[in-house]
Design a protein around this nucleic acid. Sequence first.
DNA 1: GTAACATAGTTACAAATGAAACGAATTTGG
DNA 2: CCAAATTCGTTTCATTTGTAACTATGTTAC
Lengths: 161, 161
Amino acid sequence: MSASDQSGDHAADLLRLDEFLPYRLSVASNIVSETIAATYRSHFGLTIPEWRLVAVVAEGAGLTQRDIVTRTRMDKVTVSRSARALVDRGLLLRRARSEDRRSHELVLTDAGEDLHQRIGAQARAIERAIFGRFDPEELAGFDSMLRRVNDAALALLEGEG
Amino acid sequence: MSASDQSGDHAADLLRLDEFLPYRLSVASNIVSETIAATYRSHFGLTIPEWRLVAVVAEGAGLTQRDIVTRTRMDKVTVSRSARALVDRGLLLRRARSEDRRSHELVLTDAGEDLHQRIGAQARAIERAIFGRFDPEELAGFDSMLRRVNDAALALLEGEG
DNA sequence: GTAACATAGTTACAAATGAAACGAATTTGG
DNA sequence: CCAAATTCGTTTCATTTGTAACTATGTTAC
């Protein structure tokens, strides 16, 4: 990796894109996302933000949009639009909250639950197709790295502005 | 990882987003990209595609836009627009190719080379800030996983359409 | 040679995205 | 209480992004 390449020669001054981890992370992530997005769209007519909303609400019924923004770091406008689209399709319900009438509790309809089940199966199938070939130790390491990279970048981003 | 969670109980049917590797990959990648994009924009007035173009051309002067599309998997429209923006700013030159007048060889101007040096230093600083705390073995493993994930997803995407 | 096809790149248009302004409800400070 | 400030969510608008159509050049097959 180039960050650990601290030899003082001239070549070290050139940034090789292919060895630049953020670049590689981005490319890998985009290809995986494209693969998944293609499936969600063709099989279920859902965008990635919509599907994420379904997944999050399935895990924690009764969350507000604000809760979801906080959890997923999606933009609040994206969440708003996704929620509306899902409500329009009869997959999501908004229940009034007596304690705060600005926001609503989001819950899946039966159709929404059903869709979540089917997408979940599909999502795991893709995950298996991509990650299934690696051994558990490698995966655990990868997973742990992602979490720590996430935290480190977040600290940078929020720390420095 | 959830794909390896094959216990037969009910909870196994629920997809926990937080344990879904493609999701985690995407979130981590987005945060890292945001961090870097903020720096490029504020320090150099460059978008990420523009900066990538600079980096790729710096590595292989004389490439055509098509070459860059192939190498980086950027969209050809994105490459076209980035190239134009860089030419307008005096960072990039287009040299005619006698063998094919549809395309041009791209090379950095002196100003472009200079910018590349400065950005490179900055980019490595960010990489170090995010990835510098991990030990070389972990990084090597992470790097290798990214490459293999990339290849596996690509095979899926291109194989199945 | 030339008609059909393919390729590099741009342009025009449409969809997705996010920042800023806004309306409505709630909280805070006096 | 009530005015100011804050928060949740939506809407509006500008920017970004990519698909599709197009121009220009190049290649292939007859």
